[in-house]
Amino acid sequence: MSDSTLLSEICISSASKAWKDDGELLATGIGLIPRIAAGLAKLTCNPDLMMTDGETFLISKPLPMGKRDSSEDVIEGYMSYSRVFENLWGGQRHAMVTPTQIDSFGQTNISCIGDYDNPKVQLLGVRGFPGNFISHKNSIFIPNHSTKTFVSGEVDMVSGMGYNSYHSQVAKPHISSVITNLGVFDFNGPDHQLQLLSLHPGITLEDVATNTGFEIAVKSEEETALPSIEELALIREVLDPLNTRQIIFGE
């Protein structure tokens, strides 16, 4: 591996900060970068987080990517799918997910692309998005920031609710951080507009604007903080020693 910091490592470091003020919430990173980022958060900015083995058990130490000797897992609790539902409906989780589409309202889609009755591309189905986005904090990682992912108008099938359609102070979306291959964002601009917080090295505001299908606010054009030496060591030696993260951006 080269000595220079990779884009995947910048994204992991930025994404890990999403969980820093979450206390003991269940941190769920779905997909490679979010999963490594959740592990990094637990090893750095928030050791109190709860985390699963990706299946049924709560573990004390984040698991590395790839094959491992599971007899060394330190298991501290139980988290079946049924219990995950109970946990999330009570708001006790912060998940990071990768929707296929997201719009200016923060609505997300993982169901299908195109006409609903005869979709061009069938994806997973809405899965837990409707329940997740109305019940607990969610952050978003998008590896391919473009007008196909950050769409104009509305997403094709609203799977996770956005800020345009909430019904009460309880039934509202909870979107925290948005990390992409171009920068770091949140939905705390005027009237919940997506706003830029930092640009990854070498990325310009124009890159972001031309690759986003709607107007964004700009809070800061500063450069995204690079991972610390400690964070890089944890990513490279502890959390992802097999360098599975390289496939995300072909690094």
Binding site: W89, S111, Y116, V126, F129, P130, G131, F133, I134, S135, M157, V158, S159, G160, M161, G162, S165, Y166, H167, V170, A171, P173
Partner: peptide
């Protein structure tokens, strides 16, 4: 339940 509110699950 609240789940489904604000999504196209209800539209379809």
């Amino acid at each position: 339940t609240r789940v489904g509110m604000g999504t196209d699950v209800l539209k379809y």
